[in-house]
């Protein structure tokens, strides 16, 4: 799905440490980041109800609706285009052979090695057929726009706000896309991989609160 064909990035060291004077040998670890590679579709037939779901989807919305279909650990992941999420979800919910009544979860994942690095993952459940499916779409930082599914699944409202808050994915058609967990005036999107853990100074009632590691010198 990623448009890039460059080889996977390599990571070095344990815990990302390269200059720690680590003598254990872990600092010399070299590890490939497998998340950077191309997403490879599972060869069909997929088995179980997966063929039925994917077949119905293709029949109703065209062959090109699925960019890739992956079966991993007994779970079906359908990769779709970011501007077709609403359409796909509406079909998934309403078609008699699909009937995915419940949108369980919307979450974001940031794969910094991919060009379309921000992924949005929808987990749907069909209570009628007791099936689950995962829809995944990806956008790049230059145009991080995904079609909102709130008109189909109102429950996605807060969850899409969370994905916007944490990853900066813009959901087109969302009724009020604002931050939800972080303060309204927060800068940056904390769950992105290039956003640091901690180390952010904050203002509180006019006072400047330095990040914990700068409050006192431990040296």
């Amino acid at each position: 799905m990623s448009d890039e064909n460059r080889p996977p990035e390599q990571r070095k060291g344990l815990f990302g440490a390269g200059d720690s004077g680590d003598t254990s040998g872990f600092g010399g670890l070299v590890q490939a980041a497998p998340t950077a590679g191309e997403i490879v579709s599972t060869s069909e037939p997929l088995g179980g109800y997966f063929d039925e779901v994917v077949g119905a989807l293709r029949e109703l919305l065209g062959e090109d609706v699925t960019r890739a279909v992956v079966i991993d650990r007994g779970e079906l992941t359908v990769y779709i285009a970011p501007d077709r999420t609403e359409e796909v979800c509406k079909t998934m919910r309403d078609d008699e052979s699909l009937r995915f009544e419940l949108c369980n979860s919307v979450s974001g994942v940031d794969y910094p090695d991919q060009r379309n690095r921000l992924h949005v993952v929808y987990h749907l459940t069909s209570m009628t057929y007791r099936r689950r499916v995962r829809l995944e779409t990806a956008v790049g930082l230059d145009n991080p726009v995904v079609h909102s599914v709130t008109s189909v699944y109102p429950t996605a409202d807060w969850q899409e706000r969370e994905a916007y808050d944490m990853f900066g994915v813009v959901f087109e058609g969302h009724p009020h896309l604002t931050r939800i967990l972080m303060p309204d005036d927060w800068e940056g999107h904390p769950q992105r991989k290039d956003y640091p853990l901690g180390g952010i100074a904050v203002e509180y009632k006019g006072a400047h609160i330095p990040p914990p590691d700068e409050r006192r010198s431990y040296k």
Partner: peptide, 12 residues
């Protein structure tokens, strides 16, 4: 991502 730490965990 194949490492010793979670690449991402989301709680629904």
């Amino acid at each position: 991502d194949g490492g010793t730490r979670p690449f991402r965990v989301h709680l629904r």
